[in-house]
Design a protein around this nucleic acid. Structure first.
Lengths: 269, 269
DNA sequence: CGGTGAATTGAGGTACGTCAAATTGAGTGG
DNA sequence: CCACTCAATTTGACGTACCTCAATTCACCG
C-alpha cells in the first residue's frame, strides 16, 4: 500500500509530514517542539487538564471528544497528520484528546513559549491565525452537517470530508483510521445507523468496500446527492423555506434596539 | 426596560459596547473601523462574496447562516453585540450574514489592513487570536449540543447559552432577539418542536414567559437537567458507553501507521 | 374591528434509536 | 492448518421522538 502524499499543490518541508492545506509551520515554531508518542486508547489529555501546550499530530490519528452526562462520547473533531490542536481560550482544556490508532505521534509546543514566539514573530502569528480560521471554517461546515441532514447525508458527507484529508484519502480510495463506533460518535448517530447507511451506499453503487476500513468512492455524484429523494419533499413546499426567512419584527426589534442604544449611550457618557 | 451591561468584570472602553468576554479590541485596530448600519432581512454579505473585511457587531443582532440545497436555512452562529466575525480562511465567505433586528450596526475592518496591523502589532494579533480560540471553543460546545441531545435539552441549553450573553440575558431575564424560526434553524429542529419544548419547560416551571420573546429562567437546575428522564435509560446500559471506548485495532492500525511512516520517510529523503 | 404573520396546538407518519441476534474476521492455541 | 474466542460489524424487529401537515390562537397594527 504505497501512498503518495504529493498529490496536492503544497510542498512539504523536508522531514515533516505536511498534509494540512496551509502547509508547514514556521521553523521558529518548530524549534520549540518536542516529540511524543502515545498508545491507542490512552488520552493525550483530558478535559479539565491544564492547557499548557499546543500540539500537532504527526502520524496516526486521534480525536477531540467529551463524555456527556449520560456517559456517551461525543467526538467533536478527528485529528489527523498535520493538524494543529490544543488551542484553548481558557487555562484548562474543555475537551479530551484520545488516541485512535497505535503509533500515533505528536509534536508538543509549550504554550507560553509558543505565544511569546507568536508575539515576536509575525509569521508564526499569521500561521497560527490561519490555522485557527481554518478550524473555524471546518467546525462551521460540520455544524451544518450535524444539523440538517439525515443518516445517509451525514455518512456521505463524512466520507467526502475524509476524502479531502490527504492522510485518509488518496484520490477516491480511503483508509479510515476510525471504527464505526467512532464515526457514530462523530456524526451523533447510532452505530447501527452508520452501518446501515454504509450498506445502503454500497447497494446504491456509490462506494465499494475492500474491508470495513477501506472504502473506495465509485460515484462521487451519488454521494454528493445522497439525499436527493429525501429532499424532494421540501421542493414541494418552497413556501416553508421562504416562510422562514426572517421578516421585520417591529415590537421586539424596537425594544431590543433601544436597549442596545441605551447601553451605547451609557458607555459613551 | 433599562439595561445595565456593567454586570461583568470587564471594563468597557468609552463609546464602545463591550460585551464579549475578552473585552475591547486594541485601539490601533479600532482606528481602522468604519461604521455601518443595516436593515432587518438584508444580508450583510452572502456566501461566495469576497471576504475582504472583518466585522464586529455593535448593536442589534445577526446570524451566520447557509442555505442548504433543500432550501432550508441553517444558522451556524448568532452574532450579538461585541462579536467579531467574518474570518475566513479562503478568499470568499462560506456563510451569509443576515440581519435579525432593525437598527443593527457594525464596525468594519478592512481585512488587508487588519492583517497588516496584526502582523505589525502583537497586541492586535493576540486579541484576534484569542477571539478565534474562543470561537472555536463555542463552536465545539455547540457541536456537542447539536449532536447528542433531544429537543428539550437543545432548547434548555440554548436558553442557558443566551443567558450567558450580556446583551440577551441580564441575570435570568432574557430578551431574545430572534424568532422561533431562527431558534429552530439554529438548533436544527422544526419550529413546532421548539415551541413544544418551550411549552414543556413552562409547564415544568423552569421558565416563565412575559411574551414570546421575553423569558425568565425561574429554575436553572431544571434547565440544566432538563433531560434527566430521557437520560435514565443510558444509566441502565453503562456497558454501551464503555463498549464504545476505542480498543486496539491492530491490523488497520499497523497498516495506517506504516502508511504514515512511509510518507514520512519519503519526505525526509 | 378585521388583517396579518408569529406562535401554539393537534394528529399522524416515519426515520432513527434501541435491543437482540447473526455474521464476519482477526488472533490464538492445539 | 483448523477450531475456538472475542470484538467489530452487520442485519433484523420494534418503539418512539421528532418532523410534517393542518388548524387554531395570539399579538400587533392599520
Amino acid at each position: 500500500m504505497a501512498v503518495s502524499i504529493s498529490k496536492g499543490t503544497h510542498r512539504a518541508a523536508a522531514g515533516w509530514i505536511d498534509c494540512a492545506p496551509l502547509g508547514r509551520l514556521p521553523e521558529t515554531l518548530e524549534l520549540l517542539a518536542t516529540r511524543a508518542g502515545a498508545e491507542t486508547g490512552k488520552p493525550l489529555y483530558n478535559a479539565g487538564d491544564a492547557a499548557d501546550s499546543w500540539y500537532r499530530l504527526l502520524t496516526g490519528a486521534a480525536c477531540e471528544c467529551v463524555l456527556t452526562a449520560d456517559g456517551r462520547r461525543q467526538i467533536v473533531n478527528f485529528l489527523l497528520p498535520g493538524d494543529l490542536f490544543g488551542f484553548c481560550a481558557r487555562s484548562r482544556h474543555e475537551f479530551s484528546v484520545e488516541i485512535i490508532v497505535d503509533g500515533t505521534a505528536f509534536a508538543r509546543y509549550p504554550r507560553r513559549q509558543a505565544e511569546e514566539l507568536a508575539s515576536a514573530d509575525a509569521e508564526v502569528a499569521s500561521a497560527i491565525r490561519q490555522r485557527a480560521f481554518e478550524s473555524i471554517s471546518r467546525l462551521q461546515a460540520r455544524m451544518v452537517l450535524l444539523g440538517r441532514t439525515n443518516a445517509l447525508e451525514k455518512v456521505s458527507a463524512f466520507l467526502l470530508e475524509m476524502a479531502e484529508r490527504p492522510s485518509v484519502g488518496i484520490g477516491d480510495d480511503l483508509v479510515l483510521p476510525m471504527s464505526r463506533y467512532e464515526i457514530a460518535d462523530y456524526l451523533a448517530m447510532a452505530v447501527e445507523t452508520v452501518s446501515r447507511a454504509i450498506t445502503t451506499l454500497k447497494a446504491q453503487g456509490a462506494i465499494t468496500l475492500a474491508n470495513s476500513r477501506q472504502v473506495r468512492i465509485t460515484d462521487r455524484l451519488a454521494l454528493e446527492h445522497a439525499s436527493a429523494e429525501s429532499r424532494r419533499r421540501s421542493s414541494l413546499a418552497p413556501t416553508d423555506a421562504s416562510g422562514r426567512v426572517s421578516r421585520t419584527v417591529k415590537l421586539y426589534t424596537s425594544s431590543f434596539a433601544s436597549q442596545e442604544r441605551a447601553t451605547s449611550v451609557r458607555h459613551a457618557g
